[in-house]
Amino acid sequence: MKMTLKSILCACILSTAAIAIPQTFNGGFFGAVGQQFEDFAIAAVAPGAELKGKWVAVAKEDGKLRLALDAVVLGIPASEITAEKTAGGATKFTVTYKAGDDRKRGKAAAPLKTRILGALRAYTGAEAAPGKPVDYKGARFTVAETKGDVSVEITKAP
């Protein structure tokens, strides 16, 4: 009887749950550029590198641009991505994850900051923490949290 019930439960799970096609590809930015945003950002903070993708100027903030494409960064959809640009190229990218946007995607067992730090560790192989930047392939990743929102700054490593 117990086995029968287990079998029925298993069948129910399969018939309703096996509906996903998980993939490893991001949305807009990846589709437009053919590169993960984090990989692009590492290359783009080097002197003379060009900005790929569609960027628009931020009003009243000279040299600041906002990415006009959706992007999944460190495996999590970003709420906003901005770039600070000088004549020599991009100097800083700021990826912002808003807690409200994260909540809309469903309940997660771990806080947003923990998940981003975990993803950054997977990406760089180094432990990160707020206030403890990680240098990776010539770029510096700095994670900060403000009222539940989390940002990741990507700059050239010193």
Partner: peptide, 13 residues
Amino acid sequence: RRRDFLATLAALA
């Protein structure tokens, strides 16, 4: 968003 990245996969891979 999810459909987008699946469609992206389809186009690329």
